[in-house]
Amino acid sequence: MKGLERILREHAFFAGFPEDQIALVAGCARNHRFDAGQYLFREGEPANEFFLIRHGKVALDIASPGQPPIVMSTLEPGEIVGASWLVPPYRWTFDARAVELVRAIGIDAACLRGKCEADHHLGYEMMKRFAPILVKRLHATRLQVLNVYGKR
Protein backbone atom coordinates (compact mmCIF):
# COMPACT_ATOMS: atom_id res chain seq x y z
CA MET A 1 0.00 0.00 0.00
CA LYS A 2 2.85 2.37 0.78
CA GLY A 3 4.00 1.93 -2.83
CA LEU A 4 0.60 2.89 -4.21
CA GLU A 5 0.46 5.93 -1.99
CA ARG A 6 3.82 7.08 -3.34
CA ILE A 7 2.72 6.53 -6.92
CA LEU A 8 -0.51 8.47 -6.33
CA ARG A 9 1.37 11.34 -4.73
CA GLU A 10 3.64 11.56 -7.76
CA HIS A 11 0.79 11.59 -10.24
CA ALA A 12 -0.11 15.04 -11.63
CA PHE A 13 -3.77 14.56 -10.72
CA PHE A 14 -2.94 14.37 -7.01
CA ALA A 15 -0.33 17.15 -6.94
CA GLY A 16 -0.72 18.99 -3.63
CA PHE A 17 -3.39 16.61 -2.35
CA PRO A 18 -3.58 16.46 1.47
CA GLU A 19 -1.40 13.62 2.81
CA ASP A 20 -4.02 11.98 5.01
CA GLN A 21 -6.48 11.93 2.15
CA ILE A 22 -3.97 10.33 -0.23
CA ALA A 23 -3.97 7.40 2.16
CA LEU A 24 -7.74 7.20 2.01
CA VAL A 25 -7.69 7.14 -1.81
CA ALA A 26 -4.87 4.59 -1.85
CA GLY A 27 -7.16 2.27 0.04
CA CYS A 28 -9.30 2.08 -3.09
CA ALA A 29 -6.41 1.84 -5.60
CA ARG A 30 -4.72 -0.98 -7.46
CA ASN A 31 -2.14 -1.32 -10.23
CA HIS A 32 -3.05 -2.16 -13.83
CA ARG A 33 -1.17 -3.07 -16.96
CA PHE A 34 -2.80 -3.06 -20.40
CA ASP A 35 -1.07 -4.27 -23.53
CA ALA A 36 -1.51 -2.48 -26.83
CA GLY A 37 -5.03 -3.10 -28.16
CA GLN A 38 -6.43 -4.16 -24.82
CA TYR A 39 -9.41 -2.25 -23.45
CA LEU A 40 -9.44 -0.44 -20.12
CA PHE A 41 -13.24 -0.52 -20.40
CA ARG A 42 -16.03 -0.79 -22.97
CA GLU A 43 -19.05 1.33 -23.73
CA GLY A 44 -22.13 0.26 -21.73
CA GLU A 45 -20.16 -1.51 -18.99
CA PRO A 46 -20.59 -0.34 -15.41
CA ALA A 47 -18.18 2.46 -14.60
CA ASN A 48 -16.84 0.91 -11.45
CA GLU A 49 -13.24 2.10 -11.71
CA PHE A 50 -11.40 5.13 -13.06
CA PHE A 51 -7.77 5.31 -14.14
CA LEU A 52 -4.72 7.48 -13.67
CA ILE A 53 -2.34 6.93 -16.58
CA ARG A 54 1.28 6.43 -15.51
CA HIS A 55 2.69 5.27 -18.81
CA GLY A 56 1.47 4.93 -22.40
CA LYS A 57 -1.34 6.33 -24.48
CA VAL A 58 -5.08 5.61 -24.17
CA ALA A 59 -7.54 6.21 -27.00
CA LEU A 60 -11.22 6.92 -26.40
CA ASP A 61 -13.17 5.24 -29.23
CA ILE A 62 -16.78 5.22 -30.24
CA ALA A 63 -18.13 2.74 -32.76
CA SER A 64 -20.92 3.06 -35.27
CA PRO A 65 -22.30 0.14 -37.32
CA GLY A 66 -20.80 -0.16 -40.77
CA GLN A 67 -18.00 2.27 -39.95
CA PRO A 68 -14.60 1.88 -38.39
CA PRO A 69 -14.49 3.11 -34.79
CA ILE A 70 -13.79 6.83 -34.47
CA VAL A 71 -11.13 8.01 -32.07
CA MET A 72 -12.46 10.97 -30.15
CA SER A 73 -9.52 11.71 -27.95
CA THR A 74 -6.20 10.37 -26.77
CA LEU A 75 -4.90 10.62 -23.24
CA GLU A 76 -1.34 10.59 -21.92
CA PRO A 77 0.58 9.96 -18.71
CA GLY A 78 -0.47 12.41 -16.01
CA GLU A 79 -4.06 12.42 -17.22
CA ILE A 80 -7.13 10.53 -16.00
CA VAL A 81 -9.47 8.24 -17.88
CA GLY A 82 -13.17 8.27 -17.11
CA ALA A 83 -15.73 10.49 -15.42
CA SER A 84 -18.89 8.36 -15.73
CA TRP A 85 -18.13 6.72 -12.36
CA LEU A 86 -19.04 10.09 -10.77
CA VAL A 87 -22.55 10.33 -12.17
CA PRO A 88 -25.41 7.84 -12.02
CA PRO A 89 -26.12 5.41 -13.61
CA TYR A 90 -22.31 4.86 -13.58
CA ARG A 91 -21.93 3.40 -17.09
CA TRP A 92 -19.17 4.05 -19.64
CA THR A 93 -20.27 5.93 -22.77
CA PHE A 94 -17.24 5.05 -24.91
CA ASP A 95 -14.43 2.53 -25.21
CA ALA A 96 -11.01 3.16 -23.66
CA ARG A 97 -8.26 1.33 -25.52
CA ALA A 98 -4.55 1.06 -24.85
CA VAL A 99 -2.77 2.31 -27.99
CA GLU A 100 0.51 1.00 -26.61
CA LEU A 101 1.58 -0.61 -23.37
CA VAL A 102 -0.28 1.29 -20.64
CA ARG A 103 0.46 1.26 -16.94
CA ALA A 104 -2.24 2.81 -14.81
CA ILE A 105 -3.62 3.03 -11.31
CA GLY A 106 -7.27 2.00 -11.08
CA ILE A 107 -9.40 3.51 -8.33
CA ASP A 108 -12.44 1.54 -7.29
CA ALA A 109 -15.40 3.82 -7.89
CA ALA A 110 -17.80 2.48 -5.27
CA CYS A 111 -15.01 2.52 -2.66
CA LEU A 112 -14.07 6.14 -3.48
CA ARG A 113 -17.65 7.32 -3.71
CA GLY A 114 -18.29 5.83 -0.28
CA LYS A 115 -15.26 7.55 1.23
CA CYS A 116 -16.22 10.86 -0.40
CA GLU A 117 -19.73 10.56 0.98
CA ALA A 118 -18.38 9.82 4.45
CA ASP A 119 -15.72 12.54 4.34
CA HIS A 120 -16.94 15.63 2.47
CA HIS A 121 -13.50 17.24 2.75
CA LEU A 122 -12.17 14.38 0.66
CA GLY A 123 -15.16 14.64 -1.66
CA TYR A 124 -14.60 18.36 -2.15
CA GLU A 125 -10.88 17.84 -2.85
CA MET A 126 -11.77 15.27 -5.49
CA MET A 127 -14.38 17.57 -7.05
CA LYS A 128 -11.86 20.43 -7.18
CA ARG A 129 -9.62 18.18 -9.24
CA PHE A 130 -12.30 16.78 -11.48
CA ALA A 131 -14.25 19.95 -12.28
CA PRO A 132 -11.39 21.76 -14.11
CA ILE A 133 -10.59 18.62 -16.09
CA LEU A 134 -14.20 18.23 -17.15
CA VAL A 135 -14.45 21.91 -18.11
CA LYS A 136 -11.23 21.70 -20.13
CA ARG A 137 -12.47 18.61 -21.91
CA LEU A 138 -15.77 20.33 -22.61
CA HIS A 139 -13.90 23.26 -24.17
CA ALA A 140 -11.75 20.90 -26.19
CA THR A 141 -14.83 19.06 -27.42
CA ARG A 142 -16.41 22.32 -28.50
CA LEU A 143 -13.29 23.25 -30.43
CA GLN A 144 -13.27 19.81 -32.01
CA VAL A 145 -16.89 19.94 -33.18
CA LEU A 146 -16.34 23.40 -34.67
CA ASN A 147 -14.18 21.77 -37.34
CA VAL A 148 -12.08 24.94 -37.50
CA TYR A 149 -9.54 23.67 -40.00
CA GLY A 150 -11.99 22.87 -42.77
CA LYS A 151 -13.13 25.22 -45.50
CA ARG A 152 -16.14 27.19 -44.41
Binding site: D61, V71, S73, K136, H139, A140
Partner: peptide
Protein backbone atom coordinates in the same frame (compact mmCIF):
# COMPACT_ATOMS: atom_id res chain seq x y z
CA UNK B 1 -2.91 16.06 -32.93
CA UNK B 2 -5.99 15.59 -35.08
CA UNK B 3 -9.66 16.37 -34.42
CA UNK B 4 -10.85 13.08 -35.86
CA UNK B 5 -9.15 9.82 -36.72
CA UNK B 6 -9.89 6.19 -37.24
CA UNK B 7 -7.96 3.52 -35.41
CA UNK B 8 -5.15 3.38 -37.95
CA UNK B 9 -3.92 6.68 -36.57
CA UNK B 10 -1.51 6.02 -33.75
CA UNK B 11 -0.92 9.65 -32.86
CA UNK B 12 -2.85 12.07 -30.71
CA UNK B 13 -6.55 12.77 -31.11
CA UNK B 14 -7.74 16.00 -29.54
CA UNK B 15 -7.10 19.68 -29.82
CA UNK B 16 -4.01 21.84 -29.74
CA UNK B 17 -4.65 23.26 -26.24
CA UNK B 18 -4.26 19.71 -24.89
Amino acid sequence: TVDHADRDWRGNVGVVPA
